[in-house]
Simulated scan of single mutants.
Amino acid sequence: MNFLWTSIQEWLKEILVSGIMSNLSGLFDSVNEKVADISGQVGTSPQAWNSGIFNMIENLSETVILPIAGVILAFVMTLELVQIIMDKNNFNDIETAVFFRWIFKTACAILIVTNTWNIVMGVFDVAQQVVGQASGVIIGDTSIDLASVLPDLEARLTEMDIGPLFGLWFQSLFVGITMWALTICIFLICYGRMIEIYLVTSIAPIPMATMLGKEWGGMGQNYLRSLFALGFQAFLIIVCVAIYAVLVQNIAVDTDISAAIWTCMGYTVLLCFTLFKTGSLAKSLFAAH
């Protein structure tokens, strides 16, 4: 009976060890690929990311939104003129210079609206240049290599009892599912940001038409702040990835296999959480105070 029980134990141990090795094999490959791709994604301008979408958005902005912005601009500047006149009780108190200032402001507003697309793309060009310089300085190796973190993994698993092996098999299975979820999260963050950029730039002429209005100017200023927030969100993402690269390269070799795997997973979860927070953080930095 002891021989039979020993054989069953060895058979179960072989199944569990092979299952754990299968679960851990390439466990972080998809995450490593997505994290390595982040710097390329956020360092790409809207035009280079997808030229087809870029041309479509530019065409919509100039043919559909720009005429509406022209009507809004006419309303805003007419309201501005009416307010200038009504500020004085007597027309004799109005200086001729205020009309010249109004004409100059209107001309500047028209210039801004007609060149809205160039202004918006200029904001992202500046942000992407900063991101490109930063990525060349601070980005390191972001890959998690279990072979270096856990040397002689299979031999160490063979020495473990069936109970710990069974628990480790469940843990490796759960971590594998979590890694796929985190891969999807990283994909959504990178692609969602670019889609948000296209959506925001498509309606750019409307808020820009209110930029120089006395009462409506806050709309245009807030819109410009949101553009800078979207642009420099990429810089914050690069910094997050750089911190992650330092953390994963300093994972200590631990005799506890479970602790090492959960440490690697914890760093990846932390990266995804901070990537989600970069959007709100960038907007708070550029918000009006």
Score class of each variant (00 low, 15 high):
residue 1 M to L: 11
residue 1 M to K: 13
residue 2 N to L: 10
residue 2 N to A: 04
residue 4 L to M: 12
residue 5 W to S: 12
residue 6 T to W: 10
residue 11 W to A: 08
residue 13 K to Q: 07
residue 18 S to Q: 15
residue 22 S to G: 01
residue 23 N to P: 00
residue 23 N to K: 06
residue 26 G to T: 03
residue 26 G to M: 05
residue 27 L to C: 11
residue 27 L to G: 05
residue 27 L to K: 01
residue 31 V to M: 10
residue 32 N to F: 09
residue 32 N to S: 05
residue 35 V to G: 00
residue 42 V to L: 04
residue 43 G to N: 02
residue 51 S to H: 06
residue 53 I to S: 10
residue 58 E to H: 08
residue 58 E to N: 12
residue 63 T to S: 08
residue 68 I to C: 13
residue 70 G to H: 04
residue 71 V to R: 11
residue 78 T to G: 05
residue 78 T to Y: 00
residue 81 L to M: 10
residue 83 Q to P: 09
residue 83 Q to Y: 11
residue 87 D to Y: 15
residue 93 D to N: 12
residue 96 T to A: 11
residue 99 F to A: 10
residue 99 F to W: 03
residue 99 F to P: 14
residue 104 F to T: 14
residue 104 F to Q: 08
residue 106 T to R: 03
residue 109 A to H: 00
residue 110 I to A: 03
residue 113 V to F: 00
residue 114 T to H: 02
residue 114 T to I: 08
residue 117 W to H: 03
residue 121 M to Q: 09
residue 126 V to M: 11
residue 128 Q to D: 12
residue 129 Q to G: 15
residue 138 I to K: 06
residue 140 G to Y: 00
residue 150 L to R: 08
residue 154 E to Q: 15
residue 154 E to G: 12
residue 156 R to E: 00
residue 157 L to Q: 08
residue 164 P to F: 03
residue 169 W to E: 10
residue 170 F to W: 14
residue 171 Q to F: 05
residue 171 Q to N: 07
residue 173 L to H: 09
residue 174 F to H: 11
residue 178 T to Y: 07
residue 179 M to F: 11
residue 180 W to Q: 15
residue 183 T to V: 11
residue 184 I to G: 06
residue 186 I to T: 03
residue 186 I to Q: 01
residue 190 C to V: 14
residue 191 Y to T: 15
residue 192 G to C: 09
residue 192 G to D: 04
residue 193 R to A: 07
residue 194 M to T: 13
residue 195 I to S: 13
residue 206 I to A: 06
residue 213 G to R: 10
residue 217 G to I: 14
residue 218 G to P: 14
residue 219 M to I: 15
residue 222 N to E: 09
residue 224 L to C: 10
residue 224 L to N: 05
residue 230 L to M: 12
residue 230 L to D: 07
residue 233 Q to N: 14
residue 233 Q to Y: 09
residue 234 A to C: 12
residue 247 L to G: 03
residue 253 V to Q: 10
residue 253 V to P: 05
residue 254 D to S: 10
residue 258 S to I: 13
residue 264 C to M: 00
residue 265 M to H: 02
residue 266 G to S: 07
residue 266 G to P: 04
residue 271 L to G: 01
residue 271 L to F: 01
residue 272 C to A: 12
residue 279 G to Y: 11
residue 282 A to D: 09
residue 286 F to V: 13
residue 287 A to L: 12
residue 289 H to T: 08
